[in-house]
Structure formats: structure tokens, C-alpha cells
Design a binder for these strands. Sequence first.
DNA 1: AAAGATTGATCTGTCAATCTTT
DNA 2: AAAGATTGACAGATCAATCTTT
Lengths: 151, 151
Amino acid sequence: VDRALDAQESAAWDGLLRTHKFLMQLMSQQLEAHHGLALNSYDVLRHLALANDTRLIMHQLAERVMITRSGLSGVVARLESDGLIQRDPDAVDGRGLYAQLTPAGWLLLRGANATITACIRKQFLAPLDPDDLAASSQVWRKLGHSVDVRQ
Amino acid sequence: VDRALDAQESAAWDGLLRTHKFLMQLMSQQLEAHHGLALNSYDVLRHLALANDTRLIMHQLAERVMITRSGLSGVVARLESDGLIQRDPDAVDGRGLYAQLTPAGWLLLRGANATITACIRKQFLAPLDPDDLAASSQVWRKLGHSVDVRQ
DNA sequence: AAAGATTGATCTGTCAATCTTT
DNA sequence: AAAGATTGACAGATCAATCTTT
């Protein structure tokens, strides 16, 4: 079926696009201004901190951040030269490289988390009531793009 | 308040991020493969087609597509050299430039719309029931980032 | 050969500075 | 001076090709 979207459908879809773009731009600006950190770099630090071991093989990290492996190589190289991340070869499989936060990385992430959390609360969560949140979660669950957390 | 997000809050937020990224990547690939068109270029064509006059001053167009004016200059220049858009000076205010679709632009947009609509229906609308759609729309409305349609 | 990771080429966007018209 | 638009330098991402280890 390829007939045009009706008003309801269009609203549901367009809202996703606009809300996402607005919030990403705002967060980007705030992260850059307060911490000198790009949004995707923040996401890399965040996923490392959330990982079981607080470390991840590069391609696992790429999958969670949802950028390509080669893209991640560049991001991590910059973060490493900034002293926020270190890379160590996998002792078991010599092809793999573990990325993990340095102490400086943990420190910066703490501050960045505060900035981002405040932003999410103010711009996204505050206007919504618990029913809205539950409905949203249900929608995302039905769409089924949640990350696979197995390691 | 800057305490960490709870599970419900986190699910509502993270789902937005993941769903958006997944769908954007899919649409990007399909548009590129079937029509040789980048996603943001498609969005430019689409907003021109939707505009009252089927034409817009550059900065109005930039606002709707949600990219910077300078970014838009590049996109439109490429689209113009591809023969999909033409730019004409505003007869009233010589500073302004109207962008509008060429016949080739209309034709390409028709095909691209079919691709994108099919993608939205299959990946986004199909798994959701009318209540989900209504709830989503309500969420976006409360967040209030909808475009200002006044011309 | 296959898998992990990186590099180089290219594309697309932002930012700061500039040009033109009002 | 202010507003509209563009340009040039640069940041960040993808893709194809390459290098290393298994």
C-alpha cells in the first residue's frame, strides 16, 4: 500500500523527525559549549560506561553507538588523543581491541551526563505525564529496535 | 533535578534515539539505491512541494528542513545542478531567492515519495495500532516542535 | 579465507566571514 | 546597519580498499 499518509499518520511520523532533530541540536550545542564534546563522542563514552566490564570490543561499541566501524575508528582515535579513552588489545583474540574510559574520561562523562540528563528532563520528560511515557515506551517496544544487551 | 533517569524514562528516551537512527539509515539506503537521492535532499524537495506556492524563500526552506542556511545553500546548489530545483530572485525584495521544483524534480519526488511512504508504513506504522498513533501524536504535540506553517 | 580494525577518498553539514540588497 | 544568501575552512560520517590476526 503506497497511498499518502493521512493526518494522524503524518503527525506521528513528522513529530518523531522534528522532535529528534530539535533535541539533538540542543544537546549538541550544550555539550560542545559546556564540555567541548561532540554528541556522538558523548555516546561513545556513555556506552563504554554502561558496558558490563566498562569496556567493549570496537565492533560491539560501533553497534551500540550505531555508527559504522570505520566511523568509530575516527571518533575513538580523537577521544584517545584527548586522553579520554584507551585502547588495549584483546589478550584472548589478538584481532580485537578493547576500548575503555580513562580516569579523565570518567570525570568528563560525569559532567556531560548531568548536562544531558538536565536537557532530557527539561525538554522531553517534563512536558509528559506518566501515561505518555508508558505509551511511548510501548511504541518503541513494538517497533523493536532496542539494543541487544547480550555480550 | 539531575538524578539519573529511571527505567521508564530511559526507555522512552532511548527508544526515540534508536528508532530514529534505525529508520533514517534504512530510508537513506533505499533512497540512495532507488533514486540516487540523499535523505536531506529528499526533505528539501518534499518541503518545496508542500509549500503553499510550491516555492519558498531559501531561509524559510532552511527552517523547515531544519538545517542551517549555509548548509541549505550547498544542498540546493547540488539539486539545481542536477536539474531538480531552480532558484529565482524575489521580484519584490531583491535579497530573497525563491527555490522551486523543476518538472524533473516533481517526477523524481513522486518516485521517492512512494519509496519513503512504503518504508514508513512497513517499518513504523504497521506495528502500531490507532491508539499508539494517537498517543504518539499527543506526545509530539505536547513537546511542541511542530513547524510553523505560516508563510 | 574470514573477521577485526584502520586508512584514504568523498560527501555533507556547521561555523565564521563576506557579498549584495534594503 | 540589518537581512538574505553564499563561500571557504573544517568536522564528522560512509564506503571501498587494505592490513593484521585467526
